[in-house]
Nucleic acid binder design. Structure first.
Lengths: 126, 126
DNA sequence: ACCATTAGTTTCCTATTGGAAAGTACAGTC
DNA sequence: GACTGTACTTTCCAATAGGAAACTAATGGT
């Protein structure tokens, strides 16, 4: 019988799935992980620096994503009283807890690209 | 001077950013990582099993995401000649290379949820 | 004949995401 | 007084993502 039984939903598995959803709700979208990656890679960056570093992003998305990330305490925003004013964005300690995740993502992406290039080469050769 | 200079774009950093983008192009969206997580967690699952396990997903999204994942060789699809036909979805060896990433994501999500619960408790107490 | 089950596809709709361009505000430079 | 630079916000629009419901198709059970 076992109609509609959950085949696989051990408590551990369930918690993992909730974890994945929770994490994605903070990190989803095209830009957040790239912004965090940029800030983790380097030092403090100004708004215009980020606009240049995060290739392709526009002002609206950058502002919005920075606000989201700041609200979740993943980055900090500091207004310096230079003339003209500059703002420094930096990764917070809490944001740094994402480093292993972002490392894995970058690593996987790099090896994925390599595997595509290899397929290619094989096809061209074979 | 240094107008429009790229402050932070070391070659390593650049490669990481490309990696992040590449990985996200395969894994973006609400469901792919949950489906992969479910298949990594367990054994082979049928379509209806996945529909039950991946809470909230509908038939359209499940079909589409399964196709995407299969196309990228992250999961396998095997039609069994039972009556009525059943289909077994399983993670591939290549899909398993995402395990560290998915583990990190789940782990981070779980600890994030815990930190929110703690804030909460503190507020209620304080 | 009718219902159930597996595995989908198709249609129609809404919501979210993302982007381009222009505008705001303030201060220093030529 | 015009232009440059930083740091945004606002508006308007297009594309994509996502969801509910109905439908197809094959087969077995009652």
């Amino acid at each position: 019988m076992k109609k509609n039984a959950e085949v696989n939903a051990s408590p551990i598995c369930q918690a993992r799935m909730t974890g994945i959803s929770d994490a994605m709700s903070l990190l989803s979208g095209k830009w957040k992980l790239l912004i965090l990656g940029t800030l983790i890679c380097g030092v403090k960056l100004g708004y215009m620096d980020l606009l240049r570093e995060v290739g392709g992003i526009g002002t609206k998305m950058l502002s919005k994503e920075l606000q989201d990330l700041e609200m979740n305490n993943l980055i900090s925003r500091t207004v310096k009283d230079t003339k003209p004013v500059t703002v420094e964005y930096a990764i917070t300690d809490y944001g740094k807890t994402l480093e292993p995740l972002i490392d894995e993502l970058a690593k996987w992406g790099i090896s994925y690209r390599q595997s595509v290039i290899n397929e290619w080469t094989m096809t061209a050769e074979g």
